[in-house]
């Protein structure tokens, strides 16, 4: 319409929490493409897109939980625990669909346990889930004795990781889960309760929000998604490894923070987390394409994390001051 409305939109774009991570994503793509043109080859895009959902789905859960003001460091261990349980159930003769569902229920149950302990005893979730991380990783090794159970033949792997051209079905699951969670967070009362619970608990309680229930639900969701993502990876690799998801919790938190979600809770965005997950996996892949030694990976993720948060704060502050 008129000029002023265009300027208004521009300001709104800058105010979005996703903006700075999106800018970084484009910069990273352009830089890697100019160094190694094969970075955007059809083949390599397929390679990157098949590993993003596994980090992304975990990071979505971590983001939801972080918005309500809590942490989950045990996602990497649950990521390994659920598929191992699934394989064990099937080893004992359970039907494949039922085994997956049971494993996912266990995943949600582990989250409920994290939430119950954190909220009942009033200890930081950082501590609870740090403990849980060690317990379930140890549990995996105890259950398997280091040797993974054989991956069952003839599983319905197509439903989760079937190939459509260069894409895998897991990418669509990632998209659907993002949409559902986005709807819950941005368009329902429950989403508002989440922001309120993470922002100011006392005010939230005064408003009549059951903070405990909101947080507990998100603990369960976070753990459930970690378990689901673990099942996806085990389907893709057709094996269950005790070492799966080692260090994944830090990558998921990095993806969340790069995307613009505040560590302190109360503020956050799922779209940003999706962008953050792309960024992390693309840097990982791009460094190989650019023939850089793998030692650089950590350095780059470190720089990207700090830069993203600086950019985020900076762009938003500037945008607020813009007079339109």
């Amino acid at each position: 319409m008129e000029r002023s409305s265009w300027a208004f939109n521009w300001r709104r774009v800058l105010l979005l929490r996703e903006t700075s991570s999106l800018i970084m994503l484009f910069v990273v793509i352009i830089v890697f493409f100019s160094i190694a043109p094969l970075f955007l080859s059809k083949e390599n895009v397929g390679v990157v897109l098949e590993i993003i959902p596994e980090l992304g789905i975990v990071a979505l859960g971590v983001t939801m939980l972080m918005i309500t003001g809590e942490f989950d460091l045990s996602v990497g261990s649950v990521f390994a625990f659920c598929p191992i349980m699934m394989a064990l159930f099937m080893d004992w003769g359970m039907n494949s669909v039922l085994a997956v569902l049971c494993a996912l229920v266990i995943g949600a149950g582990l989250g409920a346990l994290n939430g119950f302990i954190t909220l009942t005893f009033g200890i930081p979730s950082f501590i609870t889930t740090l403990g849980a991380m060690l317990i379930w990783r140890g549990g995996v090794l105890l259950l398997t004795g280091g040797w993974p159970p054989p991956f069952p033949v003839g599983m319905f792997t197509g439903a989760l990781v079937g190939k459509i051209g260069i894409l895998r079905v897991s990418l669509f699951w990632f998209g659907i889960i993002t949409l559902i969670l986005w709807f819950i967070l941005e368009r329902t009362d429950f989403g508002n309760w989440m922001f309120a619970s993470g922002g100011n608990q006392i005010a939230a309680r005064a408003m009549g929000i059951d903070v405990r229930r909101v947080k507990l639900a998100n603990f369960m969701l976070c753990s459930l998604l970690a378990g689901f993502s673990g099942v996806i990876q085990s389907f893709r690799l057709e094996t269950t490894l005790p070492s799966m998801g080692n260090g994944l919790e830090m990558e998921a938190i990095a993806a969340t923070v790069i995307g613009g979600t505040a560590l302190s809770g109360g503020v956050g965005t799922l779209i940003g987390t999706v962008v953050g997950s792309f960024l992390i996996r693309m840097i990982d892949n791009g460094l190989i394409m650019a023939r850089a030694p793998s030692y650089w990976f950590r350095v780059f993720i470190g720089i990207a994390t700090i830069l993203a948060v600086i950019l985020n704060t900076f762009v938003r502050e500037r945008a607020k001051k813009l007079r339109c």
Partner: peptide, 12 residues
Amino acid sequence: QLSQFEAALAQK
């Protein structure tokens, strides 16, 4: 390691 292998492969 597997995804690194695939990335290395894409690099021909």
